[in-house]
Design a protein around this nucleic acid. Structure first.
Lengths: 121, 121
DNA sequence: CGGGTATATCGATGGATGTCAATCTTGATG
DNA sequence: CATCAAGATTGACATCCATCGATATACCCG
């Protein structure tokens, strides 16, 4: 076991106050919530997926079909479909299949909500 | 090859206007910038690392040492050190070694800058 | 109905990643 | 100096993940 820097043992330049380093459970992320949030950030933790989001956002009408996303990323169509699915599962993209084509668009406010997870606890 | 939904071939309910689905290179993330940003989000794409950030932020004095982070995460000390290194490399945490202990703190503004990457292109 | 096209899904594969046990490094203590 | 503690590093290992080729699924058109 260990007794941390708040202990008097081995006190060179210890915490100024006694309660220095105890997180004192204010609002620490519990494991479940952390898992949920990690899913969103993990979805954005891939360069190609970030570019997908960027292209969709920059597209006229706010939507783009897979055929328009495959070429600029220099990836195979199955790979692009795979990335899109991850972004949809993360709640960042919406999928709308019209006829043969599938149109992807940003979920309104999703990116802002993700950003809010960082600025506000 | 393919010719996309803007082509007249197979036009069932095609894009309303001709230039519908061309991203028309407004401000699409280039590969290099995407890679850089992905690094930050990948660092946040792990539940334990999100909890580390949360605990550090909630700690008195805005800093916490490894010994205070190992227990609440129920992870081995080497694993926690590993995660902390990733967060430092991503520019999210600062490391300050004082004596035997290493104190980690949020890099001021880092989370806000990361959030800004999402709201503003 | 048969051919063609856009997308999704499946299976495989190489590389990245999270975790631990063991060890190394460094600083404090007696 | 010898010892001990905190933390970093290393090596190993299992798992996950990005990617591709092949195939399946809709859907449209003639």
């Amino acid at each position: 076991m260990h007794n941390g820097p708040m202990s008097v043992v081995q006190s060179l330049e210890p915490p100024v106050v006694d309660v220095c380093c105890t997180p004192s459970g204010t609002d620490v992320l519990d494991a479940a919530e952390a898992q949920k949030r990690a899913l969103v950030f993990k979805a954005m933790g891939d360069p190609n997926r970030l570019r997908l989001l960027s292209i969709v956002r920059a597209s006229a009408g706010g939507e783009a079909c897979v055929c328009d996303l495959t070429e600029p990323l220099d990836l195979g169509q199955p790979t692009v479909s795979h990335h899109l699915k991850i972004l949809v599962d993360a709640g960042l993209l919406d999928r709308d299949k019209r006829g043969t084509w599938a149109y992807y668009s940003l979920v309104p406010g999703a990116l802002d909500r993700a950003a809010a997870l960082l600025t506000a606890p």
